[in-house]
Amino acid sequence: MKYLKKIIPFAVSVFFVILFCYAAISKVLDFENFQTQISASPLLNGFSQFLPYTIIIVEFLIAGLLCYPKTRTTGLIGSLILMIVFTGYIALLLRTGKNLPCSCGGILEKMSWNQHLYFNMGCVILSVIALVLNLKYSRPAD
């Protein structure tokens, strides 16, 4: 059972590495569209000059942190924060009732806002579980 508690943070980290790299690469490959979608958002249009670059860099940075055991905790914290921010943004958009395009990139772009909210909430839960288990079971023995 202890082995399973150590493998879960690793598996969740692999999931987030794939998710963040996929999303970042999709955004890079269709950067003009990504930038246009961000500037179309009433919540983000004031940040549309630097936000697209920032999101891509942060996604790649967190993916990199998740790749190494020594930086995995920091990467899991980053994943949790990023997913909370993305989830909060989607929740705010749903409250405004505006039908805006998703600026996520790739297959994630095909989800409805409600599907995306549930997906992100699941990711938040996964990151919390992985972070707790990583903090508890991935430390060297004293």
Rank of each mutant, 00 (worst) to 15 (best):
Lys2Val: 10
Lys5Ile: 05
Ile7His: 02
Ile7Met: 13
Ile7Phe: 13
Ile8Met: 02
Ile8Ala: 00
Phe10Val: 14
Ala11Ile: 11
Val12Ser: 15
Ser13Ala: 12
Val14Asn: 06
Phe16Arg: 01
Val17Glu: 05
Val17Gln: 10
Leu19Ile: 06
Cys21Gly: 04
Tyr22Thr: 10
Tyr22Trp: 05
Ala24His: 07
Ser26Asp: 13
Lys27His: 06
Leu29Asn: 11
Phe31Met: 00
Asn33Met: 12
Asn33Gln: 11
Asn33Val: 08
Thr36Gln: 14
Gln37Phe: 13
Ile38Asp: 03
Ser39Gln: 12
Ala40Leu: 14
Ala40His: 12
Leu43Pro: 12
Gly46Met: 07
Ser48Arg: 05
Gln49Lys: 09
Leu51Trp: 01
Tyr53Leu: 13
Thr54Asn: 05
Ile56Glu: 00
Ile57Asp: 03
Val58Ser: 10
Phe60His: 03
Ile62Val: 14
Ile62Gln: 06
Ala63Cys: 13
Leu66Val: 05
Cys67Pro: 07
Cys67Ser: 15
Tyr68Lys: 15
Pro69Val: 14
Lys70His: 08
Gly75Ser: 09
Gly75Trp: 05
Ile77Leu: 14
Leu80Cys: 06
Leu82Ser: 10
Met83Glu: 08
Phe86His: 05
Tyr89Cys: 04
Ala91Arg: 00
Ala91Gly: 08
Leu93Tyr: 00
Leu93Met: 14
Leu94Gly: 10
Leu100Trp: 09
Pro101Tyr: 04
Pro101Lys: 07
Pro101Asp: 05
Cys102Asp: 06
Ser103Phe: 14
Cys104Gln: 01
Ile107Asn: 03
Trp113Cys: 03
Asn114Cys: 00
Asn114Asp: 14
Gln115Asn: 14
Gln115Met: 08
Gln115Val: 04
Gln115Trp: 01
His116Ala: 04
Tyr118Val: 12
Tyr118Gly: 06
Tyr118Asn: 12
Phe119Arg: 11
Phe119Gln: 03
Asn120Thr: 09
Met121Phe: 04
Cys123Ala: 14
Val124His: 02
Ile125Leu: 15
Val128Pro: 05
Ile129Tyr: 02
Val132Gly: 00
Val132Arg: 03
Asn134Ala: 12
Leu135Arg: 15
Leu135Thr: 10
Leu135His: 05
Lys136Pro: 01
Arg139Glu: 12
Asp142Ala: 15
